[in-house]
């Protein structure tokens, strides 16, 4: 087939247009370079937040998009806290960016999920790396209200990150609504994290979707870099990038360090733990009653059956 230069030019322009619509960074950057325009707004449009894990950042084409919606999903309701943790870790990363200027984080909760897995706890948030005084909790009664809240929050530009928690795959939150939210977030240039608890995979307008599953935590390190056996340290998530431009889904283990506020890649945990381990307690055992001599350290662990007490 013979292509005239005219057709080729036209095809090229159309391809560029499609790439721009899909939000492909490289194409957009090329086009920007071609057009020769530069401005703060354009720069913000292509802004990405690297997560500090090369494999993941590569799959995300540079990092988490800061000007749109990203979806985080948990398979089961009992995995909801892992997804919560990952979303909040992302919010911490977004909040500590220089541009974010420590603007507060908005959490829009879902009534059913709050009843099932509890509401965010301020002291726990502080332990997780988030300042409780820069955290707002919204508890709308219905999904429509939650969607309106998310839209208003993104538009107001007062929040460094907004997290919208929904339960399952609601008929009232389909592709239309998700596209609307995504466009709002894009227009405002603000990140919106959609947290779908115990939901199925569903077509949405978010360019990336993560599946989060819990994984055994890291052990706590002692000052001499040795591991305190049986202790529970930094949380680890099993993360699957379900939807992205990559054809093959990326799956990896991520450790969140709340103290450094940083993700680290983690190895696949060994499942089997030695049997008969004691409760990890770095200090001494609880003291015995004051008016009696201290008891000798017990050799094994004594078990109480249900009826024994």
């Amino acid at each position: 087939m013979v292509q005239t230069p005219m057709t080729r030019e036209r095809l090229f322009a159309l391809r560029e247009e499609i790439a721009r619509l899909e939000g492909n960074c490289a194409a957009a950057a090329r086009q920007e370079a071609l057009a020769g325009e530069s401005g703060h707004a354009r720069k913000r449009e292509n802004h990405r937040l690297p997560l500090g894990v090369p494999a993941l950042d590569h799959a995300l084409e540079g990092g988490l998009p800061l000007n749109g919606m990203s979806e985080i999903r948990s398979q089961l309701m009992r995995d909801a806290t892992a997804a919560t943790g990952f979303a909040l870790a992302l919010a911490v990363l977004i909040q500590q960016q220089p541009e974010a200027d420590h603007a507060p984080v908005l959490w829009i909760s879902d009534t059913v999920t709050s009843m099932e897995t509890g509401i965010p706890y301020a002291l726990g948030l502080a332990d997780f790396g988030l300042k409780p005084e820069r955290f707002l909790h919204a508890a709308p009664r219905r999904l429509e209200e939650a969607l309106w809240l998310a839209e208003t929050a993104v538009e107001s530009g007062a929040f460094s990150a907004s997290i919208l928690e929904v339960k399952g795959n609601s008929a009232h939150f389909g592709l239309t609504e998700s596209r609307r939210l995504g466009l709002r977030a894009k227009a405002a240039g603000r990140p919106l994290l959609l947290l779908r608890q115990s939901g199925e995979e569903e077509a949405s307008s978010a360019p990336f979707r993560f599946l989060v599953e819990p994984a055994p935590a890291k052990s706590r390190l002692l000052p001499d870099r040795s591991v305190l056996g049986g202790s529970i340290g930094n949380p680890v998530f099993r993360l699957t990038l379900e939807k992205s431009r990559n054809p093959a889904p990326v799956s990896l283990y991520l450790e969140w360090n709340p103290h450094d506020r940083q993700f680290f890649p983690a190895h696949e945990p060994e499942r089997a733990w030695p049997a008969g381990r004691l409760s990890a307690h770095s200090g001494s055992r609880l003291p015995a009653s004051a008016n009696r001599p201290g008891r000798p350290q017990e050799l094994g662990s004594v078990l109480a059956l249900d009826q024994a007490s």
Binding site: I119, P120, L123, G124, A304
Partner: peptide, 21 residues
């Protein structure tokens, strides 16, 4: 360390086997 999500009221748990005391 405190948990990330706290239940509004603690839920009873059925423990059949625990180390005493």
């Amino acid at each position: 360390e405190r948990p990330l999500r706290l239940f509004r009221r603690p839920e009873p748990v059925d423990v059949s086997l625990a180390e005493v005391p």
